[in-house]
Simulated scan of single mutants.
Amino acid sequence: MAMMTAVIEDAAAPAQPSGAISRIAHVEVLQDLHAAEPIWRALQQPPHLSTPYQRFELLAAWQRHVGAAAQVSPFIVVASDAERQPLLLLPLGLERGFGLRIARFLGGKHTTFNMALWQQEFAQRAGAADLAALLAGLRGHADKADVLALQQQPLSWNGVVNPLSLLPQQPSVNDCPVLTMAPGAAPLSLISNSFRRRLMSKEKKLQPLAGYRYGIASSDAEIDAVLDWFFAVKPLRMAAQNLPDVFAEPGVAGFIREACHARRDGGGRAIDIHALRCDDEVIAIFAGVADGQRFSMMFNTYTLSDSARYSPGLILMRNIVDHYAALGYSALDLGIGSDDYKRLFCKSDEPIFDSFVALTARGRLGAMAMSAAARAKHVVKHSPGLMRALQLARGALRR
């Protein structure tokens, strides 16, 4: 069944039962991260509902280094009840495009999932009346934004349905392969015995290296050393694939360094770096975010040395799967996109969606155009023939 167009206009707000009353009594927009921080940090604490991509320390680092350089200004939406108790926080940034003021999730291309931070009990009960109240409140701030472009949202998180999925929606451009891990699952149910044997055979070629080991970079010195190696190797890897170096874009290196060092509430870092190393070099890394129930990969690369012949990235991924399975995690993903190596571990897809919401009359055409462009990209990404043609055209342009 085709999904509804994800553009909302004034006359197409979520339908609500007659007489339905929303708990949302106040909607405000904060344009200063520090003003939003106390509410933000409270809502990212369990048992509230949010993804680790929306942690304050991660997105504040992104805004300082990347968002500000791209002229994105904070547009933090806070909805509260009649007693001024926060019910949700939308971590958005305002940018200009197509002659419009567009509010998007902070984090840009560096977040796999985007989601509001929700008071847990409210998230479980939120309905159409609440979303209508949220949009009505935002339209009261219509001099600040014309369109909400709410992209790459999960349909649910940690077993709770995302309330924003009640809005009209369309599939996001890319899928996100995911590995579901049942509590106490046997290792062979997560990674087949034959695949494990293949990886063990390859790893035997690496094990004689002095100091060969797997681990998470924990000290500041370890983090700096691994990132120094990453920023030297990744551009060469991307150039070899005729891909642009996204890590050379303004502010990106500073954002990654700050987030990898930042301490998150409850211990650990905002971004964890898993690595295969020996005494002479870093062999491979996978870096991502974790929340006690799910690990999500953000960036990775592997060595340029002869050790690359033995699939160190796959060996590292096996270690990561075993690490989080032993901790009782329920899911693991390798980020959006359907690269072949991801399918070796992640057999299912996480449903993710976009919604484009017009807040003003002038935003209606812009929201419709963004929705149509995203649908077209989705079609290309899910058509092998069109995708091959696009890749050939890109390769020709880069020669």
Rank of each mutant, 00 (worst) to 15 (best):
F356W: 09
R139W: 02
V226Q: 09
R294L: 13
I315S: 05
A129R: 05
D228N: 11
A185M: 04
G137H: 01
T180E: 13
I352L: 04
E258R: 04
G268T: 03
F247P: 01
R277M: 03
C260H: 08
D339Y: 09
E350P: 10
Q85V: 13
F75R: 10
L276K: 01
M238W: 06
A116Y: 03
L327W: 10
I336D: 08
F113H: 06
Y341A: 05
A376H: 15
D322S: 13
A270H: 06
L117K: 09
A61H: 01
M1N: 15
R264M: 10
F255V: 08
T360M: 10
I352R: 05
L359V: 06
R55T: 07
I223D: 02
G292N: 08
M181I: 12
K381R: 15
Q152D: 15
R269C: 06
L365I: 13
Q85T: 14
L89E: 10
L332V: 11
G254S: 05
R139D: 08
R375P: 14
Q45G: 07
Q120W: 12
M298K: 06
A132G: 02
A82G: 08
F113V: 08
A326S: 07
Y302E: 09
I320F: 00
Y341L: 07
L332F: 10
R101S: 11
K109P: 13
S311K: 01
A232H: 07
G211K: 10
L33S: 10
L117H: 04
L359F: 00
V160D: 12
M297Y: 13
G385L: 00
D272W: 05
G67D: 07
N193R: 15
L314Q: 09
D280S: 13
R196Q: 12
L332R: 00
A396D: 05
Y212R: 12
A325K: 13
G313R: 01
L344C: 12
L227F: 05
G108P: 03
D265R: 13
V161P: 14
A13Q: 15
A287L: 02
M370I: 11
R394F: 07
L89Q: 05
L314R: 08
V178T: 14
H110K: 12
P154W: 00
N158T: 15
M370D: 09
P14W: 06
A239P: 08
F247E: 01
A240T: 09
P351I: 08
V72D: 10
L392P: 13
P235M: 08
A126S: 07
R398I: 13
A325N: 02
L236T: 05
Y341K: 01
W118E: 03
R196H: 13
G268P: 10
R318S: 03
L314F: 00
L167D: 05
